[in-house]
């Protein structure tokens, strides 16, 4: 039984803060979608089927703008290419005897946050751990969207603005403890941040989309890490 499985329960517990952190972001998504003319039920359907922040925000903005389907698909794909790297990293962390069907199932729940928590676990991870970890964030994402879609006009703009920082604050909470313990991690973070800043502010480089700049910054920083700070116990 899944509910008796200690791995599942442990994952479920780890998912609680992610779910609560997702709620305000999903809430903002619900507001964005409905204020752009998308029916609340469809906004929730987007959250249930996409379960991703940046990709579905961008895709939904394009739907609202009336962009062609090809452009919507391509933009979303580029933003989501980073999941290739995350999924690859998790493939090395998942117990090797996990079946392909189970792998295909839990890969649906890989998000920046579930990935980070799973990847930062000390030991190998199991299918039931991943199911537990994904469970609450998935419903937090959907419920937050539904709430945002329903009450979108009631909330003052200031609160909406303030909630925009939630995801990034969660990212910071995931990075900083690792950076405190390891100079290598600190160096990798510095390289990644420098490159993404270049792509944001340097003329010419600014044309590169956010999706690609994340991928390039991640690849370059991790390459530098593997060359200059190879890990001992791997």
């Amino acid at each position: 039984m899944l509910f008796r499985d200690p791995d599942f329960r442990y994952g479920l517990k780890k998912g609680v803060p992610i779910a609560l952190g997702y709620a305000p972001v999903a809430f903002t998504f619900g507001i964005l979608a409905v204020s752009g003319g998308i029916p609340p039920s469809l906004a929730v359907l987007i959250s249930l089927t996409n379960l991703t922040s940046a990709g579905q925000f961008a895709g939904t903005k394009l739907i609202i703008a009336g962009a062609p389907l090809f452009e919507i698909a391509l933009t979303t794909l580029v933003i989501n290419i980073r999941y290739l790297l995350m999924s690859f990293a998790l493939s090395q962390k998942l117990l090797p005897n996990t079946s392909m069907l189970k792998r295909a199932l839990i890969s649906f729940g890989i998000t920046d946050e579930t990935f980070a928590l799973a990847a930062l676990e000390k030991d190998d991870i199991s299918f039931s751990y991943m199911v537990g970890l994904i469970c609450l964030p998935y419903w937090g994402w959907a419920l937050g969207t539904a709430l945002g879609a329903v009450v979108f006009s009631v909330l003052p703009g200031l609160v909406q603005n303030a909630m925009g920082i939630a995801l990034y604050a969660m990212f910071i909470a995931l990075i900083v403890p690792g950076g405190k313990k390891s100079r290598a991690v600190l160096a990798i973070v510095a390289i990644a941040v420098t490159i993404s800043s270049l792509f944001t502010w340097v003329p010419g480089l600014k044309q590169v989309s956010a999706g690609w700049s994340t991928i390039i910054a991640t690849l370059a920083a991790c390459l530098a890490g593997a060359v200059f700070f190879p890990r001992e116990e791997v």
Partner: peptide, 29 residues
């Protein structure tokens, strides 16, 4: 491969850092 395993170990830190900064500066208006 030690190289590949080291590379993958750093992915969460690099990816989250690249997504956070400077995007966080434009997240509140």
């Amino acid at each position: 491969s030690r190289f590949v395993r080291s590379f993958l170990y750093y992915v969460p830190y690099a990816a989250l850092a690249a997504m956070t900064f400077p995007a966080i500066l434009y997240s509140t208006g």
